[in-house]
Amino acid sequence: MEWVYFAIFLTSCFVAGATGGMFPPGQWYDELNKPSWTPPNVVFPLVWTTLYIFMAAAGALAAISPDNSLALALWSLQIVTNMLWTPVFFGLRKLKAGLFVLVCLWISVAAAMIALWQVDWRAGLLFFPYLIWVTIAGALNLAVVRLNPEYTS
C-alpha cells in the first residue's frame, strides 16, 4: 500500500470526523431519552478512530488497484455523507433528518463495500465493520427518534 494514498484518505476521514468537534453532543443530547443499549460516550471516538483507519486503508488499497473508478467514487460519496450526519443531528438537532442521512450513509457504505470488494477483497473487508457500526448507529438514531417525539418536527 502506498503510504501517500493512505495519508490522503486518512486526512479525508479525520476532516469528516472534525464535525464531531464542531457540533459536540452537549447537554441537550445527554437529556434525550435513549435506549438502554446506547453505548457509553467514550466508545464513539474509539470506534470512529478505528473505522477511519480501516476506511483509509481500504481507500488506499483501491487507489493502487486497476479499474478503481467506481470504488473511489463511492468511497467519496460515503465520506461526504458521513460528514453530513453530525451537523444535521447534533448541530440542527433534527433527529428525523439525521435518520434520513443515516439511511443514505448505510446505502453508500454498502455500495462502497461491494465496489471495493470487487477491486480488492481486502478493501471490501475493511469496510465491513463500518457497515456494522452504521447499522448500529441507524438503529440508535431510530430509537432516539421514537423515544423523543418532541424533536420530530
Rank of each mutant, 00 (worst) to 15 (best):
R146W: 14
C104A: 15
A63C: 11
L46R: 13
L140V: 13
I8W: 12
L74S: 02
W85P: 03
G26W: 09
I132V: 09
W121Q: 13
W3S: 10
A58T: 02
M22F: 08
M1C: 04
T49Y: 07
W48A: 10
A58W: 00
W48C: 11
G20V: 06
Y130M: 01
V134Y: 01
A139M: 14
P66S: 13
T38W: 13
N33P: 04
F127H: 02
Y29D: 11
N68G: 08
I64W: 05
P24W: 12
T81M: 08
V80R: 06
A137I: 09
P24Q: 13
S36C: 03
L116S: 01
D67F: 06
L72S: 08
G91E: 02
L131D: 01
I136W: 11
L147M: 12
S153Y: 12
L32E: 12
V47Q: 02
S108E: 07
S12R: 08
P25L: 14
W121L: 09
P25D: 15
V42K: 15
S65G: 01
W28K: 14
R122N: 12
L147V: 07
L46P: 09
S153F: 12
T19L: 05
Q27G: 09
A112C: 12
P40F: 12
V119E: 01
N82L: 06
A71K: 02
A58I: 00
I136Y: 15
I114G: 00
N41H: 15
L140E: 09
L10W: 06
Y29K: 11
A60K: 03
S153G: 14
G98D: 04
A123P: 00
V4F: 12
V43R: 10
V109F: 06
T19A: 09
Y29W: 11
A111C: 11
G124M: 02
E150Y: 12
F54P: 04
S36Q: 07
A97Y: 10
G59R: 02
S65V: 00
M83Y: 03
L92F: 10
R146F: 13
T50F: 15
A97P: 11
L102W: 03
F44T: 12
L126E: 02
S36R: 08
A110H: 04
A115T: 06
F90P: 06
P45D: 11
L51D: 01
K94V: 02
I114Q: 04
T152E: 15
L116I: 06
L84E: 02
L51M: 10
W85M: 05
P66Y: 07
I53E: 09
F54R: 04
P45G: 11
M1K: 07
N141E: 03
I107M: 08
W133P: 02
A16L: 03
L116M: 13
F23A: 05
L84A: 14
F44K: 14
G91N: 05
G138E: 05
G124F: 00
V42P: 11
R122I: 13
D120N: 09
P35Y: 10
G124C: 03
V80K: 05
W117R: 05
L116V: 03
L10T: 01
C13A: 08
V103W: 08
W133F: 05
F90W: 13
C104V: 15
V101P: 03
F54K: 03
M83K: 01
A63E: 05
Y52E: 05
M22S: 07
L92E: 06
L131I: 03
N148E: 15
E31Q: 14
L105C: 06
F44A: 10
W37K: 11
V43L: 15
